[in-house]
Design a binder for these strands. Structure first.
Lengths: 352, 352
DNA sequence: AGTTTCTGCACCATCGATTGTGCAAGCGAA
DNA sequence: TTCGCTTGCACAATCGATGGTGCAGAAACT
C-alpha cells in the first residue's frame, strides 16, 4: 500500500483511484469544479484521496499549460546589504500574501548578467519581474518586452517601463543640510570641509550629487570642484579613495556625504587599525539606513528609503493598466544618529 | 517578418523553418546532437536560426519532461540580516558557477511555513534544497524525502539529513573567554556581571548557552542561575528583556553575551534615546559578524561564522553519496572590535 | 409521449521539450 | 549484385495539468 520511494501522485493516479476522469480530478483539485458542474460528493471523494495520497500539483506542468508559473521575480544587485535585503524581505511578504511564490535573485550590477538572469526567469514563465537597482534597466526591458512579461523598475529608473524610486534629490538635500546644520555657529563647516564619497554614473548618484552641490552652494556659499570622489558601489574602491585623500591632505574631511551604506563600509575599512579618537568629531551623512551604522561612534545621519512604500507602489503599478512609462518618487526619511528603527522583520512573530 | 508581440519561438517553429524534425532541433539545441549523429551542417543551420529568432528553451517544458528544473533552492529564516544575506550571496555565486539557477526564499522561522515553502519548491521540481536555520529541519525533511529531493541542513542541524553548522560551542567558548579577558586584572569581571541575552530552544542557542555557562564557571569560578535571558530571534523581545533587566537592576550588566546580531539590534533599541556615555564601558560579545556592529561605540567582540566554508562543504555533501546523516562543524572565527572584514561582495567587480 | 433543459462528467488536443526506437539512403566489401 | 554496416535523421510516446467540447441520462415541461 504505502510504497517507499513512490513517485508523487498525479491526477492520473487519483483518476484511477476515484474512478473519475483526469479532467474531473484536475477540476476538483484546482478549484474550478463548481464551474464545471462536478457533483459535490464526487469532489469530496477526490479531495479525500488527494489528502490521503499527499497529492500536490506539479506546478511545472500547470505552468507549461497555462504559460504562467505563479512565480514572481525580484532581481537585486546584491543580497548582502540591509537596503536590498529589506527589499527582499518586504517583497516576500507581499508576494506571499497574494498566494504566489517569490523568487529572489541577484545580478551583481552587471548589465550582461542582468539580461541573462531575466532570460532565465522568463524561461520559467514567471508572471512578473521587479527589477531593483539595475545598471541597465532598459536592457532588461528589451528582454522582458518580447516575452510579454510585466516588469517594473525600482530604485533606479528606466525609460521603457514604470519606475518607482526614492526621491534622491530631496533625500540628498535633506541630508546635506542636516550635515551642515550639525555644526554649530561657533565653528561652522566650511565648503572645503565637506566631501562626497561613493556614487557612480547612475541616476541615483547623479541626483544625489546634484543635490549635494546645490545645497552646499546654497548653505555654504561655495562648492569647490573636487568635492566629489566617485568610488562606485564597492567598499574596497571606497577604501582606496579615502586612503588617497588621506595621503593628500593628511586627514579626513570634517564632514562626509557617503553615497550608500556600501561605501560606508569602505570608510570602516579605512578606520580599522586607526585609533577611534581620530574620528570622534567626524560628521557623516549616509544615504541608506542601517541600524548598526546609525550607532557608530561619530555622528551618522542616515536617509532611510521607504522600502515598504516603494514595493507597495510597484505592485500597484505592475497590476495596473499599461500606460506610458512614468517615474514615481517616494519620499525618503532623514534619520538622526542613534536611531534603531523597526524593519520588515518586526512583522514576523517570534517566540522567546 | 518581425511580428510585434510574437510568441517565443519553439523547437516546432525552428523545425518548420529548418526543415528538420522537432527532435533534431531539440537535440541540436540542448547539445546532445553529436551523440545523435546529427550532421554538423544541419546543426549549424539550426543554431543559426535559433540565434536569428532569439530562441530560448522553455525551461518549464524541459523540467516537466526531465523532472528536474535546473533550480537550486536556498531556504532562509529571513533575508534582512547580514549573516543570512551573506549566505544568500555566497550561495548564488556557487550555484551560478555550476550553470544552475539559484532561488532564494525565506520561511520566517515558522515550521509550517518551512514545510509549505519546501512543498512549493518541490512542485517546481527543484534539484536541490539548502535548508538554512530551519526551526524544524526534520519536518522539512519529511517533505523532501518522499519527493526524492536532495537536501541539506545548514546552520541548524537536523537528524535526518546531513547538516553543516558552525561550531557553536567552540565559538561561544572563545567569545565568552574573550569577553572576560577584556577586563583587566585590576577590575576583573565578576560572575554576576556577565549575562547572555537572546537565544531560544534551538541547537545553536543551546550549544552557545552551554559553552557560556561552562566558560563562565571555568574562568570566573561561578555562574549564577539567572545569567541567561532568552529572547528568541526578535529585536523587540530583546528590547523588552533589556528594559526588564534595567527595571530590576537600575543598570545594564558590565558585560553581555548577545546570541545573534538580531538580538544586538534589540540592544540598540534599548540604547536609542539613552545617552551614549551610559554604555561606553560596556563589553559586548556578539555571535554573528556585522561590519557596522563591529564599530559600535563600545567594545564589540564578534564571532564570524565561516559562511563560505559552510556553503562549500554543503555542496560537497549534497553532491556526494547518501550516507547516514552526520553533522559537520565548521570553525567560526573570533573578530576583535573595530574590524572591517571582506565579504562576498568583494568578489564582485565594480566600476567607479 | 415527446421535446427541451439541466446535470454531471468524459474525451481529447494542447503546452514545449526529451528520448527510445526505427528506418532509409549511402557505402564498402564479397 | 547482394549483404551488412554506418550515417543521419524522423516518428511518436511521454512528462502532468488544463479547458473547450460533446454527450448520455435525468428532470422538467408541454
Amino acid at each position: 500500500m504505502d510504497q517507499r520511494v513512490k513517485k508523487k501522485a498525479t491526477i492520473y493516479d487519483l483518476s484511477v483511484l476515484s474512478g473519475s476522469s483526469p479532467s474531473t480530478v484536475s477540476a476538483v483539485l484546482n478549484g474550478t469544479w463548481r464551474k464545471r458542474r462536478i457533483k459535490e460528493s464526487t469532489a469530496q471523494t477526490i479531495l479525500g484521496l488527494a489528502e490521503l495520497h499527499q497529492y500536490t500539483t506539479n506546478l511545472q506542468a500547470r505552468g507549461l499549460r497555462r504559460s504562467r508559473s505563479g512565480l514572481v521575480g525580484l532581481m537585486l544587485p546584491v543580497h548582502d546589504n540591509r537596503y536590498f535585503s529589506s527589499m527582499a524581505q518586504t517583497f516576500e511578504g507581499h508576494v506571499r500574501s497574494r498566494g504566489q511564490c517569490p523568487v529572489v535573485v541577484s545580478a551583481s550590477r552587471d548589465p550582461e548578467e542582468e539580461r541573462r538572469t531575466a532570460e532565465t526567469l522568463i524561461s520559467y514563465s514567471i508572471d512578473q519581474l521587479f527589477i531593483v537597482g539595475a545598471t541597465d534597466p532598459d536592457g532588461v526591458h528589451e528582454v522582458c518586452e518580447p516575452a510579454g512579461l510585466r516588469h517594473i523598475n525600482i530604485d533606479l529608473p528606466g525609460a521603457k517601463a514604470h519606475s518607482v524610486i526614492s526621491d534622491n534629490y530631496e533625500g540628498a538635500r535633506m541630508l546635506t543640510e542636516a550635515i551642515i546644520r550639525r555644526f554649530g555657529n561657533d565653528d561652522p563647516l566650511r565648503p572645503d570641509e565637506l566631501f562626497l564619497f561613493g556614487g557612480r554614473n547612475d541616476h541615483a548618484s547623479r541626483e544625489r550629487i546634484a543635490a549635494f552641490h546645490a545645497t552646499k552652494k546654497a548653505l555654504l556659499g561655495a562648492d569647490p570642484e573636487d568635492g566629489v570622489q566617485s568610488s562606485g558601489y564597492s567598499p574596497d574602491i571606497t577604501l582606496r579613495a579615502f586612503e588617497a585623500f588621506y595621503q593628500r591632505h593628511g586627514k579626513l574631511p570634517r564632514a562626509l556625504f557617503i553615497n550608500s551604506s556600501i561605501n560606508l563600509e569602505g570608510l570602516l575599512r579605512f578606520m580599522a587599525g586607526r585609533p577611534a579618537e581620530m574620528f570622534s568629531e567626524l560628521v557623516v551623512g549616509c544615504y541608506d539606513y542601517d541600524p548598526f551604522g546609525s550607532f557608530l561612534p561619530f555622528s551618522v545621519i542616515m536617509v532611510r528609503q521607504n522600502v515598504e512604500a516603494m514595493i507597495t507602489k510597484a505592485f500597484e503599478l505592475i497590476d495596473g493598466p499599461t500606460t506610458t512609462p512614468q517615474t514615481f518618487l517616494i519620499a525618503p526619511e532623514l534619520i538622526q544618529p542613534r536611531s534603531a528603527l523597526k524593519g520588515p522583520l518586526d512583522t514576523l512573530k517570534d517566540i522567546a
